[in-house]
């Protein structure tokens, strides 16, 4: 199998680390070699954050480079646009339809671009979800990232049972129920 390249992008504090850990877990569950690369420290403070997941027979480089991502998971619209050039031509973009203004926009130094998703849809396969609204309906806005992951999972190689097992093993014990629900919701949306 050719090495699969997954990228998760978002804003510091959106839970990219938890999501990448579940992706790492699913790769092991599938019997693959896997490498993940994360961002800690200063960059996490509300900045643009990227994590990489690569799995396959044997994986050397721990990062995904430009034009190589099979799946780009974006937790925010502007971040999807920022990293879209990492996506392969036939790759799929999973995007959470949410806007978080960067400080450069809040302070009037820059404009938040309009019509991002429409523009990206012209050139790529795009699956979008308003995960924040969906998560609030489930009663916990924090699990929006797991909904987005569920949507991405529906377009990847593993069975739903494998995913659920890994989600249960990765998230904090007290939150297993709500996270499983969130994952299943994302999965259903993705399969539609």
């Amino acid at each position: 199998m050719q090495t699969k390249n997954i990228m998760i992008v978002g804003v510091g504090g959106q839970g990219t680390l938890l999501t990448s850990r579940i992706l790492g877990g699913i790769a092991i569950e599938g019997g693959y070699d896997v490498k993940l690369s994360e961002v800690h420290g200063m960059a996490q403070r509300g900045g643009s954050v990227v994590t990489f997941v690569r799995y396959g027979e044997t994986v050397a480089e721990p990062i995904v480079e430009e034009g190589q991502a099979d799946v780009l998971i974006a937790f925010e619209r502007l971040e999807a646009l920022r990293y879209i050039h990492f996506l392969k031509k036939d790759g799929v973009l999973i995007v959470n339809d949410q806007k978080i203004e960067p400080i450069t926009v809040v302070t009037g130094m820059a404009q938040y671009p309009e019509g991002i998703i429409e523009k990206l849809e012209e050139e790529h396969k795009v699956l979008k979800v308003d995960a924040m609204t969906e998560a609030k309906k489930l009663g916990n806005s924090k699990v929006f990232n797991i909904i987005v992951l569920g949507l991405a999972a529906a377009h990847m190689d593993f069975t739903k049972e494998q995913w659920i097992k890994v989600v249960e093993n990765t998230v904090p014990k007290k939150t297993i129920e709500i996270n499983t629900k969130a994952f299943e919701l994302g999965w259903e949306i993705g399969k539609k």
Binding site: R45, G47, L81, H85, A110, P113
Partner: peptide, 18 residues
Amino acid sequence: QPDVKEAADVPARPPILC
């Protein structure tokens, strides 16, 4: 040179106080 598109010109998102 890898066959990839240029990065989009988008507003920066530097780290900030929470």
